[in-house]
Design a protein around this nucleic acid. Structure first.
Length: 284
DNA sequence: ATCTTAACCTGGAGGC
DNA sequence: TGCCTCCAGGTTAAGA
């Protein structure tokens, strides 16, 4: 569920509830997927940031009398189905209590993770350590992206690795590749293809953030804001979840294949595979 | 080193 | 209604 636009929307929505507040407790069932959360107790939240699909709560150093002089971070990954809620529910996994109230971490599938670490110490989180540039920042450069893309394997799994650029997941990879008119299994992108993809990623991410992310209608994993509000970008999906429907550009039915173990949607007419490539395993 | 695969979990949808 | 299979927004350890 949560890719960069959903995580960024979450950050913007819960920051006013948490910034400047003191964490009184962070409680859960003891699962090792929530590491060292007790270290957050008594700390003040100085701000929230985001890196790729990871959310960071910055925890200011406690008063000198309390010992540990270092700033800490509470790193949160929403996994496939994680999200914050104002109200407790059947899938509440973590309860965050501040001096202003409570916020609940809802995560039916339990793929979400939290960890309190010394600020900036991301050992044990290889994806975060090897994360590429933020797609909407100046650090994301077309020339460098094109250079890497020229040597890459199948483009979609490559994007999902988080290495060439951060925050792209299954939905926005499919949508970006459709806009750039590139087949998801294409390898070694030509310079022009990489340029189109670079701009498509920036456009899609920008529009999706502005729309508040995508909320899919599949029940359990349905992404929602903390107050239950839905995103609006799902209404603009050209290919994701549109199997069999006409391509908005040419009318050809959208096709679904499995690539790198992920459902992959594309237009077989607009996104042709260049010579010498395989098209992945056709599903069904 | 890099790429592929299975595993981690839960529950909703659809077929019979 | 019940049972079964398939599927899902992500990451990562292990294997080739």
């Amino acid at each position: 569920m949560p890719e960069l636009p959903e995580v960024e929307t979450t950050r913007r929505k819960i920051e006013p509830l948490l910034a400047g507040r003191t964490i009184l407790s962070l409680t859960h069932d003891g699962s090792p997927r929530y590491r060292d959360t007790h270290l957050a107790h008594g700390r003040r939240v100085s701000g929230l940031s985001r890196r790729g699909k990871y959310l960071m709560l910055h925890l200011a150093a406690a008063e000198a009398a309390e010992g540990d002089p270092h700033d800490l971070e509470l790193i949160v990954h929403l996994g496939m189905t994680g999200g914050f809620r104002l109200e407790e529910g059947p899938h509440t996994r973590v309860t965050l209590t501040t001096d202003a109230g409570q916020l609940y971490f809802n995560d039916p599938r339990r793929f979400g993770k939290m960890a309190v670490v010394p600020a900036g110490e991301y050992g044990g989180m290889p994806t975060l350590l090897g994360m590429g540039p933020e797609p909407l920042s100046d650090e994301f450069r077309e020339e460098e992206f094109a250079r890497l893309a020229a040597q890459a394997g199948a483009v979609k799994p490559w994007l999902l690795s988080q290495k060439p650029v951060s925050g792209v997941g299954n939905i926005y990879a499919d949508e970006s590749l459709w806009r750039a008119r590139i087949h998801p299994a294409q390898t070694r992108l030509a310079r022009e293809e990489a340029g189109r993809l670079y701009h498509a990623i920036r456009e899609v991410m920008h529009e999706a953030v502005e729309a508040g992310g995508s909320s899919l209608g599949d029940g359990m994993g349905n992404y929602r804001q903390h107050d239950g509000e839905a995103g609006a970008f799902q209404g603009r999906h050209a290919v994701y979840g549109q199997t069999g429907k006409p391509c908005p550009r040419c009318g050809t039915p959208i096709k679904k294949i499995v690539l790198g173990q992920r459902g992959t949607h594309f237009c077989p007419e607009c996104q042709p595979l260049r010579e010498g490539e395989t098209s992945g395993d056709v599903q069904r």
